[in-house]
Structures are given as C-alpha cells and as structure tokens.
Amino acid sequence: MVDAAAPGAGAVAAAAWTAITCTAAACTDRMLIYGERHLRSVLNEYRDHYNTHRPHQARGQRPPDHDEHVVMPIAGRIERHEIFGGVINEYRRAA
C-alpha cells in the first residue's frame, strides 16, 4: 500500500486536532449545543477570541492577530468582558 499523504500532512492533522481539543475544552464541554447553527456561532466566537485576544506562549504572550506596531496602553481601568455567557473572560483597558 502506498501512503499518498503529502509531506507535512501529519503536522497539519496535529494542529487541527489541537484546535479541536482546545475548543472543546474551552467552551463546548461547558455548554449545551442546540444544533448546527448554534455550533457554528460558538466556533466563530471562539475563533475570534483565539486569534485576537487569547495569549499564545510561542508568540511572547501575544495573540496571532496582534499588530507589532500598535502600542498597547498601560494606564487606565481594566474592564472584564464575558464571552460564551461567562465561560471565558477577556480583560481590556477601558476606552
């Protein structure tokens, strides 16, 4: 039998599995999904959180969509924003 998998396919599969298990652990294990539309909504909200807010250790605690040229304010009040009905909290400087 010939393995027709492209080089690097194992790494892609591992990354996909990591994303799926992280999503499941972060939100879907703590909420009841009512159907495909609700699942898509939850996954889209988690994707936005993962890419724009959640810190990533390999990126120096910055999210993937972080713009290196934007200066983050360090003064001011911090506000908490609940996502997924409070399952996950995001913290940001008040405007």
Results as ranks from 00 to 15, higher is better:
1 M>F: 11
1 M>K: 09
1 M>Y: 12
2 V>D: 06
3 D>E: 00
3 D>A: 12
4 A>K: 09
6 A>Q: 11
6 A>V: 04
7 P>W: 00
8 G>P: 00
8 G>Q: 06
9 A>V: 05
11 A>Q: 04
12 V>K: 01
12 V>F: 07
14 A>G: 05
16 A>Q: 10
17 W>V: 09
17 W>G: 08
17 W>Q: 06
18 T>W: 09
18 T>Q: 02
20 I>D: 11
20 I>W: 13
22 C>E: 05
22 C>T: 09
23 T>Q: 09
23 T>R: 07
24 A>Q: 05
24 A>S: 12
25 A>S: 06
25 A>K: 11
28 T>H: 01
29 D>Q: 13
30 R>T: 02
30 R>I: 07
31 M>N: 02
31 M>T: 04
32 L>C: 06
33 I>H: 03
34 Y>E: 04
35 G>Q: 05
37 R>T: 01
40 R>C: 02
41 S>Y: 09
41 S>W: 06
41 S>V: 04
44 N>H: 04
44 N>S: 07
45 E>D: 13
48 D>Y: 04
48 D>C: 09
49 H>E: 11
50 Y>G: 08
50 Y>W: 11
50 Y>P: 03
51 N>H: 09
53 H>M: 14
54 R>W: 00
54 R>C: 08
54 R>A: 15
55 P>E: 13
56 H>D: 03
56 H>Q: 11
58 A>Y: 08
59 R>N: 00
61 Q>L: 06
62 R>D: 03
63 P>Q: 13
67 D>K: 15
68 E>M: 11
68 E>I: 03
70 V>S: 03
70 V>N: 00
70 V>P: 04
71 V>W: 02
71 V>C: 03
72 M>Q: 08
72 M>S: 01
72 M>P: 00
72 M>H: 04
74 I>Y: 01
76 G>T: 02
77 R>M: 06
78 I>P: 01
79 E>G: 12
80 R>Q: 12
82 E>K: 04
82 E>F: 05
84 F>V: 07
84 F>G: 14
84 F>Y: 10
84 F>W: 07
85 G>R: 02
86 G>N: 00
87 V>I: 10
87 V>P: 03
88 I>L: 07
88 I>V: 15
89 N>Q: 13
91 Y>W: 09
91 Y>A: 07
91 Y>V: 04
92 R>I: 13
92 R>W: 12
93 R>I: 11
93 R>S: 14
93 R>H: 12
94 A>K: 01
94 A>L: 03
95 A>H: 13
95 A>N: 06
